[in-house]
Structures are given as structure tokens and as C-alpha cells.
Simulated assay, not measured.
Amino acid sequence: MRDLVLVPSGRIAMGHTAMNGRRFQLGTLECDNQLFGEMEFFTGYRCQLDIMAEEPLEVARIDGERLEQALVAHPKVALFFATAIAIDYQDTVDIFTCRMLYPISYNIALDLYHSHCHDNPVSGFSKGYQEAERFGTTDRVYRRAVKELMDKGLVERGEQGLQIRDLAGLKAFLEQP
């Protein structure tokens, strides 16, 4: 299917379940006219992530054939798509790379720091096991990493979940080699 989906507003979750049953949850996204399917439209590949509504959504379907005609007739629209794809790609690769190359405690700290700066492309989940899956690990390993950060005095549990306790210390933790 070459159609795209536009979500005017609402909350969606993105993740992937591997053949071995392990799950990776990228996080949740608060949609503000969020477009889905543009990468698949241009590549012809299937979507690599599971995209799930976190609440009832109204969506609009964008006909792929009509979009292709519009792109040919208005090349500046193609530039808009290329830019949007590049930004999404960079954000996703950055998240995946950090998850693979750094310890879980570092990734949790980095996620909290990005949330503090309000520049997190995706946010977390409300349930512990979903947070663990967001970092590609088990609930037990996730809890151990959080405890490490708490023992260092960098984070604490608050009403809204984990929050930064020592911003300067957290930044120093993230900058160490």
C-alpha cells in the first residue's frame, strides 16, 4: 500500500518486536499533524516499526497515486518530504545508536536530560515494563540502572516518575568518557 496516514492529534506508540520475542519500544509521540508512511512511500519497503494508537484517533488517508502526481507537478513539495524524512531518520538513528553503544544507565540519564531540555522527539511510557522495553532491556535490568543513578544522587522518583535531582551532576555523568 502506498498511501500515507496523517494524524492531526493524539498519542501513538512506536516499537518493534524481534523474531526472538524481545521488544524495543521507541517511545510515544504526541501527534500534531504527524505524517506516517512517507519513508515507505519513497522506498517501497514495509514499515520497520509497529505504530499503535495509545487512544482513539481520527486519521486522514493520503492517496499515494495522487501524492506522486502532486510531487511531479510541484517539486518543492518533494523537498518538504525529503526534509521531513531526513529529520525523522536522524532522530531515530541517534536514538538507536545511543541505545546500542551506551549502558542503560547512560541512556536513561540522557533521556531525562533531553526531556528536561524539551527536545526529546519521543517520550516515555507510564508503565515500568514499557520503559524497560524502550531501552531494549528487561524490567529487572532497567530497575538496576535506575537504582545506580539514584545511588549517585542524580535522579529521584517523583509524582511524574523519574526526575533529575542533580542537573550539574547528570550533565557531568553524560559527558564522562
Rank of each mutant, 00 (worst) to 15 (best):
E58I: 12
R99S: 03
N120H: 07
A13S: 15
G44F: 10
H16R: 12
T137D: 06
D94M: 08
L4D: 02
S123T: 15
V59G: 06
Y89G: 04
N20F: 11
K147R: 15
H16V: 13
K171Y: 01
L29K: 15
A53P: 01
I164W: 03
L167E: 09
M150R: 05
V77E: 06
Q160G: 12
G153W: 02
E133H: 14
M150I: 13
A73F: 10
N20I: 12
L26F: 14
R143L: 06
N20K: 11
G153E: 12
T83M: 01
L4P: 00
V122M: 11
T137G: 11
H116D: 09
Q90N: 04
G158F: 04
T137H: 11
E40N: 10
G15T: 12
G64S: 13
L35R: 08
R66C: 06
T92V: 12
G136E: 04
L29P: 03
V122L: 06
D151Q: 09
S9T: 13
V59E: 03
E159K: 14
L6H: 05
R61F: 15
D166F: 14
P121W: 09
Q90K: 06
K76H: 09
I85P: 00
A145K: 01
H74K: 13
Y129D: 09
E156F: 02
R61L: 15
R165M: 08
L49P: 01
S9F: 15
T43N: 05
L4C: 07
D119F: 07
L57W: 00
Y142K: 02
R23Y: 10
G27W: 00
T138E: 12
V93A: 13
I62F: 08
L101P: 02
S115F: 05
R11I: 04
A168C: 07
Y113C: 00
G169Q: 14
M19L: 01
E30M: 15
V77F: 15
F41C: 11
M1N: 10
Q176P: 00
V7W: 03
G161D: 01
E131T: 08
K152C: 05
A13V: 06
M39I: 13
G37W: 02
R2G: 07
T97N: 09
N20V: 13
M1L: 01
Y113G: 02
L35T: 06
A145Q: 01
Y142G: 04
F173R: 01
A84H: 06
L6F: 01
I104A: 08
D139P: 04
V77M: 14
E68H: 14
N120V: 00
V141K: 12
D151A: 13
L71T: 05
E156Q: 13
K152M: 07
Q69I: 08
H74S: 14
A53Y: 05
R157E: 10
G37K: 00
Q48Y: 06
T83L: 03
